[in-house]
Design a protein around this nucleic acid. Structure first.
Lengths: 338, 338
DNA sequence: TTGTAAGCGTTATCAA
DNA sequence: TTGATAACGCTTACAA
């Protein structure tokens, strides 16, 4: 059964003593082809394990049925979960995905974009790098009529683009509301890096929930950190130093940050430490093994963000939505109580 | 700058009033082309953002510069870490990867294989589904001269194939050795599903370490479970029930299983629970937040497994290794002490 | 009902 | 030094 060179239509045609076009039509079930001929062709194709050459079809049809996905990192569970949704939906609709990681490096992002441009992907889904402020390497795609959807990370500097983002405002609002409903009046907000727009969206969710419930706000209850443990400890110290305004609950930007915070409070044997109720963004699978787990998690549904990005992209590819008619899709978070 | 249709060589040629072949050669830096002509062509190409059409080149060169990756699930951190290595190495060598997940379903695996066959991928990297015992959908590739490398999961029923696997024997040997060196004489082994070959490879590592150190073996110290929590608890009960042969240390198949075990022992307030030293396969990132963390982890280096699979595949594609000269690569584990 | 031929965008051979 | 032409594998008017 070794053949070592793919079967082509031409080869089939010679074997069957027919023309290439008859074979092609038979395989594609053209109504004008005789039933008996069809059967003969299809049987022979099956027997010889004929598979049409995608490159040839792509060339002919001027499309690739490939979607490019550019994202920072495949080690971050958030992104891989988002890919899950993209891949799933793409496959269901006959598309393959090519994934390219940028390591949050602009230069690599540009290279990825150029590679995918050559591959003539039919569409692009992008989680931009932290450094990305200029979008010309992505604009090339739109200039050739290839739609681009930005997802998970908000391209704040790009005003006219399609985006699919987690509704981080709503997620933080619900977390805060949940804590208020449980009787908390002193709820701290531990934000992430200030350059990230989500940090502020979440803060707005927090502050709006306070306002809507007539809970007074104090700037003592707000601090910011990044993903560095030392900075998180400093932030936590500032939140919990005051004697009058001590928080009884905490909403944190991301669970790893929250875990660092909890670990610290525990290590210094903070009074009533075990009474403090915490919520972070993430919903890490190992939460049930923690000794002092958060009371709830804000599940960001990255799979759904990915799926929605792919759905929008498909609508753009199929011209169900005008490419210039820029869309913004928000995917709601879900509060998961542990 | 909108053009809405990709620039082609023909278009460039017309603009420059030259032939298509001259333009092509100029862009590919043929020595026979006049320097001035080259410059003119290359400048025009840059100005119009010309990018060669990959499909056309693929058709011409009869290859795609695409590697297919088939794996069970993109939610499993082990696999996504392995992809990290594949993607990294592929990109460095000018290849793109297409990922397809099977959800451990044979039917989906066959569909994935067929799709990638049509795409004329230059090579295939596969982590087989749990159901896979017949390999004809992969043999098609080898029959067309496209190399296939199996990785992470051992295709036990496929005798003649290329594989890249984690050296789980060595990992378990080292874990056991480590515990012996710390003075343990009663070390329990909690294995995974018996159908998985790794379960037995690990057991062999365990038993060999015992033997090499003249530590006596008792079947009371061995139990098996799967990923179901109840079964893990049953297994743990059987390991810790005996009064004479009580383990002082534990080697577990996978960390999630180990965490369930620890959680259970803690919940029943097992005597001297905090003295029991545990090691599991995995090295989960959140270990430092656990209250009773394992003393060490067996890091399986999935990135390295992925990278080695890609490296081997590349050698096969480039004919550095004969496709019939079946290779088996083992990637060592690393014991990480916490 | 089937076959001929052109074309998709490249590269490569040969001729000019 | 450049250009005409065929070829890669497939689809599709159009002709037979």
């Amino acid at each position: 059964m070794k053949q070592n060179t793919p079967i082509t239509l031409k080869f089939l045609a010679e074997k069957l003593k027919m023309s290439v076009s008859t074979v092609s039509k038979a395989l594609n079930n053209y109504p004008t082809i005789n039933e008996y001929t069809k059967k003969r062709v299809q049987e022979m194709a099956k027997e010889l394990h004929f598979t049409p050459n995608k490159s040839a079809i792509n060339l002919k049809e001027r499309k690739s049925r490939i979607i490019g996905v550019i994202l920072p990192n495949l080690l971050d569970h958030f992104f891989t979960r988002s890919i899950y949704g993209v891949e799933q939906f793409a496959t269901e609709n006959g598309y393959n995905i090519i994934i390219s990681q940028t390591h949050d490096d602009l230069e690599k992002e540009i290279q990825s974009a150029n590679r995918l441009l050559k591959s003539r992907v039919d569409g692009l889904i992008v989680a931009i790098s932290k450094q990305t402020q200029n979008f010309s390497h992505f604009d090339q795609f739109e200039n050739m009529g290839t739609p681009v959807v930005y997802y998970t990370r908000n391209p704040s500097f790009n005003l006219n683009c399609h985006k699919v983002l987690g509704n981080t405002f709503q997620g933080c609002y619900e977390a805060t509301q949940f804590l208020i409903d449980r009787g908390h009046q002193k709820i701290a907000y531990l934000g992430g890096p200030k350059m990230i727009s989500f940090t502020h969206d979440r803060f707005n969710g927090y502050i709006n929930a306070l306002k809507d419930n007539d809970v007074s706000f104090s700037s003592d209850l707000v601090a910011y950190t990044d993903f560095d443990r030392e900075n998180t400890i400093t932030a936590i110290q500032s939140l919990f130093k005051s004697s009058e305004n001590t928080p009884t609950a905490l909403v944190a930007f991301k669970e790893p940050i929250l875990f660092d915070a909890i670990k610290y409070l525990k290590s210094v044997e903070y009074p009533n430490f075990d009474k403090i109720e915490c919520i972070g963004f993430g919903n890490t699978s190992l939460i049930s093994y923690l000794d002092f787990p958060p009371i709830a998690s804000v599940e960001e549904n990255p799979e759904s963000v990915g799926e929605n990005a792919m759905r929008l992209l498909l609508q753009l590819i199929n011209d169900d939505i005008e490419i210039q008619n820029y869309q913004k899709v928000m995917v709601d978070c879900k509060l998961v109580v542990h």
